[in-house]
Simulated assay, not measured.
Amino acid sequence: MGPPVVVTALIAALALVAGVSANDPDMLQDVCVADLNSTVRVNGFPCKSQINANDFFSDLLVKPGSTNNSQGSLVTAANVLRFPGLNTLGVSISRIDYAPGGQNPPHTHPRATEIVFVLYGELDVGFITTANVLVAKTIKPGEVFVFPRGLVHFQKNNGDVPAAVVAAFNSQLPGTQTIATSLFAASPPVPDNVLSKAFQVGTKEVQKIKSRLAPPKK
């Protein structure tokens, strides 16, 4: 899929998210490109003194990401940490690529609503409400689906060809908590007896899951 299609999808996704009220604080000036080298730490980032057009440009999402991993997917994020011109603007964007059978596992974004635009392939997507109701649907190229802020959600490619989406967020830094990783690969670790009781399984099962999700040793 060529870059023009990706660019079109980016514009469409940003236009869709623009209609959602920003979760981030309102900005107080025209622009505030993030100074990622500053030692000052605030709720956001201080502004660079000198800006240029490249601060407001990114080609991060042009190429498909490698899906050669245990989940068969890769999220390429263009948030304020990698795209400083987004600072104070209340938006960010990602590209998610999926191998056949790949998934973006259950996770949440504590600071943003997410909307996805399908570039190609088909995905089974869904979120779970706080009443434990699953809201799910299969989405196809050109279609969109929205995941409300803070709710657990997922995407799964059940097809035999690759798939990809562009995801837009109403936050410059949405944050992501993958449920399994947060619980079983936290540092320091969540006690085994807590997880054993929560999931109603034995300690050996908890330890087995922890060993599989542990980050690789350097």
Rank of each mutant, 00 (worst) to 15 (best):
D124H: 14
N104G: 03
V194E: 01
N157V: 08
V125A: 02
P110R: 00
V17T: 11
A53Y: 11
I139G: 01
V6D: 04
A34W: 01
Q103V: 12
I96E: 00
L89A: 08
D30C: 10
K140C: 10
V40F: 05
F56M: 12
T130K: 13
A214H: 09
A78S: 15
N87Y: 01
S171A: 14
L60R: 09
M27D: 11
V165C: 00
G85A: 08
N170P: 07
R149S: 15
M1W: 10
L14T: 11
N158S: 15
L14N: 13
L10Q: 14
E122T: 10
L173D: 15
Q103M: 15
N158F: 09
G44N: 08
R149T: 11
P148N: 02
A164M: 01
D35T: 06
G85M: 04
G65R: 07
N79M: 09
A13W: 00
A34K: 03
A18P: 07
G19H: 12
I115F: 00
R82H: 12
Q177G: 09
N37E: 15
A186G: 03
F184H: 02
A214E: 12
L86P: 05
P64S: 14
M1D: 14
I179Y: 01
L151Y: 10
V5M: 13
R95Q: 09
E205F: 11
D160L: 14
F154Y: 07
D59G: 11
G101C: 09
